[in-house]
Design a protein around this nucleic acid. Structure first.
Lengths: 265, 265
DNA sequence: GAGTGGTCTAGACCACCTT
DNA sequence: AGGTGGTCTAGACCACTCA
């Protein structure tokens, strides 16, 4: 990854807005991010620079940076540095648009990189989720997605290979939903979505080039067609600071509800 | 909070399943949680006990514990100890049921405690969200909610006082939605929900009796009636390990979607 | 090869929770 | 009053990224 410029370090004393040193440093750095001194995407001063400049132990500096990371204000690129986070991307799981679409709509630059794609016999775990027999042919696709050149999620994609012959021959750098509709005339009629905040596991952290222990958001999606057959099963491992999830729900009658129809465009 | 029993410490050597000491300790503790040695709700051995028992520095022990916290396997009660987390509670934001209902349905014990309730002139921020004039009377209610005696979220509730006269006289320890329907004949027709993972701010952390810097989930909900008037505005600050969010979406036609009607019971 | 973050050690003091 | 986690210090070595 190209290393963005680092803002030079000139520091008025840390104002003791918080009694605790690490929170005072957090406030100080947050203020400089807000003021535009450290713009989104830029590199923060190194931990050792801050250590020298602010007269606090590197561990304390690190606590302040980890705090800002948890708040989603900065993120790190493992062993390269700390960077200022951009705005969160709005994501509405009840809409059909894919990653490439909604990211671009928000003025950001999405990108997809294939990590692996294979046809394998379904394990028990996969078979259950896809509603197929154990050992039946299935696809396993692993993709890395980025926003503004920052890797932000790893996607695992499982699908029934019997139903989608030759899927791996198509370009999978774009929206899978679109490939399914165009090439196989398969449309998603229903989705089961799960989300929970967690940490990125070692494997996913490595793919995203972040440290193990980086906070994440685990998102799962099971898509069904009109006949209630599973079309695909998705696992998405997101950096926790990337998404702002919006859901709009309309209730029609007592105890029932439906999503308000979304207007295109 | 009553202090649950602590499992006594007898330790076979840490198996070096991971090269890094703190991850090896994480694996070791996770295995003992899985095996039932440390059951949900019980207290973990203290950091100093683990330090002595495992022959690692307390800082390293702490890194392992923080890792497990991030994964949602354990949580801490500030300055009291580390505890084993229970199962996540399933929450479907597109359903109308309130906290007390869906928590109880899952065999857990929900509780609500009022922290404050006042009638105040709306600030600019509140006025915008409620769609009322700045300075118009509004309610501000702050509640603490628990599951199985563990505080898990702080709720801020804003409402239009002109429209709901005498609201504070009613019992607000239960579902507000129900009070609104029963006492004011107000029904929610639409909700705008926002979610993003973050850290608990100092104020909310204090109310939840957790350390500042504890990971959280920030959830916001704006409810409208059938005439598109705002009924209430909610802010919820959740401990990050409590929720498993489920959303079920049905697509009817190209570009539109609606939630599958939920059957009662 | 220089610089970065990632991890670890061995101490210390404090605020607070618990009993 | 004793024990807990929360914070801080001052070092150290390593794996890795980047130029």
């Amino acid at each position: 990854m190209a290393r963005p410029p680092r803002t030079s370090l000139e520091l008025p004393a840390v104002e003791e807005s918080s009694a605790l040193p690490y929170l005072a440093i957090r406030d100080y750095l947050a203020a400089r991010i807000d003021s535009g001194e450290f713009p989104a995407g830029s590199r923060m001063p190194s931990e050792r620079q801050l250590h020298e400049a602010l007269g606090r132990n590197r561990g304390t500096i690190r606590d302040a940076l980890l705090q800002l990371e948890g708040e989603g204000r900065i993120y790190r690129h493992s062993r390269s540095g700390w960077y200022v986070a951009g705005r969160r991307v709005r994501y509405d799981p009840t809409r059909a648009e894919g990653f490439m679409t909604y990211v671009a709509e928000q003025g950001r630059v999405p990108a997809t990189q294939m990590l692996s794609a294979e046809k394998v016999p379904a394990s028990a775990w996969v078979a259950e989720r896809l509603g197929i027999r154990i050992g039946a042919p299935s696809y396993f696709i692993r993709r890395l997605r980025s926003i503004d050149a920052r890797p932000v999620l790893v996607e695992h994609l499982y699908a029934n290979a019997t139903r989608l012959p030759g899927l791996l021959k198509h370009s999978l750098d774009v929206s899978l939903t679109e490939v399914l509709r165009r090439e196989y005339d398969v449309t998603v009629a229903r989705m089961q979505i799960n989300m929970s905040p967690s940490l990125l596991s070692d494997v996913q952290a490595q793919a995203l080039r972040v440290a193990p222990g980086t906070p994440g958001l685990y998102l799962t999606r099971r898509s069904f067609d009109a006949d209630e057959r599973v079309v695909e099963y998705n696992q998405e491992y997101w950096c926790h600071d990337v998404l702002d999830i919006h859901v709009n729900v309309t209730f029609t009658a007592e105890g029932t509800s439906k999503r308000k129809p979304a207007l295109r465009g």
